[in-house]
């Protein structure tokens, strides 16, 4: 897939600092329409920060996020709201509104952002829930269904307005392998059925290889490898290989402490 035609999402020179610590460095990315891009990386590599910057939860300290050609970073709140209607987000926990039923959760974006007749809203809700296989659960409360189901409802809600781009934050976190496959299959199906662009943030290598058109690996706040899944099955970069093969030993350290272990245990002066 070529990255030069009409990108639905484009990141240019994104930098982000938290309390003086640089979390994202010079992130550049173009995602063409219809592509499924998976961002992988270990814990604390900046994946979530990057996703939250793209969806406008955090403002980048430098750089721009273009969604469908519109600069989301410098947009007024009203304009940002309009841009946000073009995308859907599946949060890690599903983030269902706990005071509303499953059906009301899916219906909310339709009721808030469209003038559709109530009958049509109900119909769309049933269609979206059928897509995720949960049509019979419309009247249950989020607390009454399992974590995996909540995620699927979250997905139905994310696609309620037929978004041009869907963001997934760790879609397989906390799910068993079967539920993970179900979500993966949904992501693949959505691309086929809706032609939606997907951006998936995950640390699950298996699911990344299953769904991705392109994979980008984030390490230390920057992309160290971007390419089709084939490139990730036999990586040359030792850091990528360590992550893909899940090895304990390698250039990516498990420990993130900055102080010396012995000094930390025994105090300032080692005995």
């Amino acid at each position: 897939m070529t990255a030069d035609v009409d990108p639905i999402l484009e990141l240019r020179g994104i930098e982000k600092f938290f309390e003086g610590r640089q979390v994202l460095r010079n992130i550049n990315l173009r995602v063409p329409r219809g592509e499924t891009l998976v961002i992988i990386g270990g814990s604390g590599c900046g994946k979530s920060t990057l996703l939250r910057t793209i969806i406008g939860e955090y403002a980048p300290d430098a750089g721009h996020v273009y969604i469908g050609g519109e600069d989301a970073c410098c947009a007024s709140p009203e304009r940002l709201d309009r841009i946000r209607r073009r995308f859907g987000i599946l949060f890690q926990s599903g983030a269902l509104y706990s005071s509303m039923t499953v059906g009301e959760n899916v219906a909310l974006p339709l009721r808030e952002h469209t003038d559709l007749d109530e009958k049509i809203v109900r119909m769309i809700v049933k269609m979206k829930l059928e897509l995720v296989g949960l049509r019979d659960f419309e009247d249950l409360m989020p607390a009454q269904i399992s974590g995996g189901m909540r995620k699927r409802v979250g997905l139905a809600r994310a696609i309620a307005l037929d978004p041009e781009i869907v963001f997934y934050d760790e879609p397989s976190a906390g799910l068993d392998p079967i539920a993970t496959s179900v979500i993966d299959q949904l992501i693949i199906d959505l691309r086929g059925k809706l032609g939606a662009t997907s951006l998936v943030v995950t640390h699950d290598m298996q699911s990344a290889l299953r769904i991705a058109d392109r994979i980008a690996m984030l390490y230390g706040g920057e992309f160290i490898a971007v390419g089709p899944p084939a490139e990730f099955s036999s990586p040359t970069d030792p850091r990528v290989r360590q992550f893909v093969e899940g090895l304990a030993d390698g250039p990516i350290p498990l420990r993130v402490s900055k102080t010396d272990y012995v000094t930390d245990l025994l105090g300032e002066e080692p005995v």
């Binding site: 406008g56 939860e57 709140p77 509104y97």
Partner: peptide
């Protein structure tokens, strides 16, 4: 507060629904 912890407020905001209005 519980809605903030459960990412519900973030979900509202990112779907273009202003939490203050809603």
């Amino acid at each position: 507060g519980t809605m903030v912890v459960g990412e519900e407020i973030a979900a509202l905001r990112t779907s273009g629904i202003h939490p203050v209005r809603f």
